[in-house]
């Protein structure tokens, strides 16, 4: 464990806590893409299938449980909670996310570390996570002004993978035969997708203005 990876995990945790706070405090999920939440639930379920067979550390196991449970709770809340689900922007959240699932699955069958069930699921989860934010970014562009908590949620979610890239660079230089090129390349694509969001987020912070993404 290194400081970049720990900071990345904490940033990821903060993004989920900010999202939970937004939904709980405002009893609304307006501006949140349910499709992105469903994709993330799939990412965690596919990536953490080894939670019962591979014990790495107490920290690792607890974080896996927290990520799976919180994301499933958010999806349930956006689908089942009678007050929250009314504020879901159904007509704006129209990204065809099934294509993202299919494309990630095909790519995982072609490019993986080992042709085993677990490794293909792991590669699938890595590729899917890289594109999982797309429905959310499209929804932000369509829904005009973005409320603070939603903006912070997306910011922390994008920042965590950027910190993971620093973690991979650090491990590359400090650990012999460290190679995570699938996660690295995918992580670079994932972080690059946030580039324009980060730009407008920085502008809104610098000008102390409301965050607004151009349509």
């Amino acid at each position: 464990m290194n400081i970049f990876r720990f900071a990345g995990d904490m940033t990821h945790l903060i993004s989920i806590l900010v999202l939970l706070l937004k939904i709980y405090a405002t009893k609304s999920c307006s501006g949140i893409s349910r499709k992105t939440q469903e994709l993330y639930a799939l990412v965690f379920l596919a990536r953490y299938v080894d939670i019962f067979t591979e014990f790495i550390s107490v920290y690792n196991t607890i974080m896996k449980i927290v990520f799976i449970a919180s994301t499933l709770a958010i999806v349930w809340c956006m689908r089942g909670h009678r007050v929250v689900r009314r504020s879901y922007d159904k007509e704006l959240d129209t990204f065809r996310h099934y294509f993202l699932i299919a494309a990630s699955l095909v790519l995982a069958l072609l490019v993986h570390e080992k042709f085993t069930f677990q490794e293909i699921l792991w590669a699938f989860s890595i590729y899917l996570e890289a594109v999982a934010i797309l429905p959310q970014l499209v929804l932000l562009q369509r829904s005009g002004n973005v409320d603070n908590l939603t903006g912070q949620y997306v910011f922390f979610l994008g920042a965590y993978r950027g910190l993971y890239i620093l973690n991979w660079i650090y491990r590359y230089f400090t650990e012999p035969h460290f190679s995570r090129w699938i996660a690295c390349v995918s992580g670079l694509v994932q972080t690059a997708l946030y580039a324009d969001f980060f730009y407008y987020y920085f502008l809104s912070w610098k000008n102390n203005a409301k965050l607004k993404l151009p349509a």
Binding site: R5, E54, N60, M63, E113, Q118, E119, N167
Partner: peptide
């Protein structure tokens, strides 16, 4: 610490 897959990251 034996890892079947070398995925020690979240």
């Amino acid at each position: 610490l034996k890892l079947v897959n070398n995925h020690d990251e979240l």
